[in-house]
Computed example of a mutant assay.
Amino acid sequence: MSTRVALVTGGSSGIGEQAAIALQQAGFTTYAVARRVDRMARLAEHGVTTFAMDVTDDPSMVAGVERIVAEQGRVDVLVNNAGYGSYGAVEDVPIDEARRQFEVNVFGLARLCQLVTPHMRAAGEGRIVNISSIGGKFYEPMGAWYHATKFAVEGFSDSLRVELKPFGIDVVLIEPGPVITEWNRISRESLVATAAGGAYEEMSTKVAAAMERGDSRMLGSPPRTVARKIVKAALATTPRARYPVGKGAGTILRARRFLPDYLFDGIVTRVYLR
């Protein structure tokens, strides 16, 4: 069998960058894509092929998948990692920004699933790895739109998993806890800026401080930890439906599963607002 081929979105930094490197080192012919090719220069040193793709632009996604199939004849693994966190009070976040959050985190992911599925189905095998979050199972104040997208990714992936199983295509969810990347910093800075001078300014400062704690080595995990889990999911003969990963991920998900809402609300309030 020829070398397996992987496509990783959001490859310019953090989890996507580390996942592309790890997949290449695991023996995949790996393509990494992002809007800014210049930020993926480091990946070329590891043998990863990079090119521009915007997951909010359909022609860009169509052309990207067509290029890989033309060059390699296949796409074995899709890692849908592109995404961002837009934080702010529901009252404050413009609805256009909320729509963009869904375009990037949900509809871009879904469109790439549509584009690779015919090729995987023709091959009788394939694997779609969607990067969700523990944020797809729990919630934070000031994070309604971000969490809504991750809840959507969870439901979408669960349905797609059953739908594609008869064709030999596995759909896997990766659910990271806090990860030490620029994602956290950008999200909390945007949160504070959005709330400045308004009714939620004090609340935003508290939430941002709680988010910043996730960037510490005590609470957060490096992106390579998530990358290793992605490779595990890509290589597993029979992958699990979901892989929580990182410090505290399993604990938080178990607490959400077993605690009644009012108790979990109290925990969230203590962590983020006091």
Results as ranks from 00 to 15, higher is better:
residue 82 A to N: 06
residue 76 D to I: 00
residue 78 L to Q: 14
residue 82 A to P: 02
residue 63 A to V: 05
residue 59 P to Y: 11
residue 60 S to Y: 01
residue 91 E to M: 03
residue 94 P to F: 05
residue 66 E to T: 09
residue 105 N to K: 12
residue 54 D to Y: 09
residue 73 G to N: 15
residue 94 P to M: 03
residue 87 Y to V: 12
residue 100 R to E: 10
residue 67 R to V: 00
residue 107 F to V: 01
residue 72 Q to L: 15
residue 82 A to C: 04
residue 63 A to M: 04
residue 53 M to H: 08
residue 76 D to P: 06
residue 84 Y to L: 07
residue 96 D to K: 12
residue 91 E to Q: 07
residue 55 V to D: 04
residue 103 E to Q: 09
residue 99 R to I: 14
residue 60 S to D: 07
residue 82 A to F: 01
residue 60 S to W: 02
residue 68 I to C: 10
residue 59 P to M: 13
residue 104 V to W: 14
residue 88 G to P: 01
residue 56 T to F: 07
residue 87 Y to N: 13
residue 108 G to F: 01
residue 91 E to P: 03
residue 64 G to F: 09
residue 76 D to G: 01
residue 108 G to Y: 01
residue 58 D to M: 11
residue 98 A to H: 05
residue 105 N to M: 12
residue 73 G to F: 14
residue 83 G to H: 04
residue 76 D to C: 03
residue 55 V to H: 03
residue 92 D to S: 07
residue 81 N to V: 04
residue 75 V to I: 09
residue 78 L to E: 15
residue 71 E to G: 14
residue 63 A to W: 03
residue 77 V to S: 15
residue 95 I to P: 00
residue 70 A to P: 08
residue 81 N to R: 05
residue 78 L to T: 14
residue 86 S to M: 06
residue 75 V to M: 14
residue 99 R to C: 08
residue 90 V to Y: 05
residue 84 Y to F: 10
residue 92 D to I: 02
residue 104 V to I: 15
residue 63 A to D: 13
residue 56 T to C: 11
residue 64 G to A: 15
residue 68 I to K: 09
residue 62 V to E: 14
residue 61 M to S: 11
residue 63 A to L: 03
residue 91 E to H: 02
residue 105 N to Q: 12
residue 57 D to Y: 06
residue 58 D to V: 15
residue 55 V to M: 00
residue 73 G to I: 03
residue 67 R to A: 12
residue 76 D to E: 02
residue 88 G to D: 02
residue 72 Q to R: 15
residue 82 A to S: 08
residue 104 V to F: 13
residue 65 V to K: 10
residue 57 D to I: 01
residue 59 P to W: 05
residue 98 A to E: 12
residue 108 G to M: 00
residue 92 D to L: 09
residue 76 D to S: 01
residue 84 Y to R: 05
residue 64 G to L: 07
residue 68 I to N: 10
residue 77 V to N: 13
residue 96 D to R: 11
residue 84 Y to S: 03
residue 54 D to K: 10
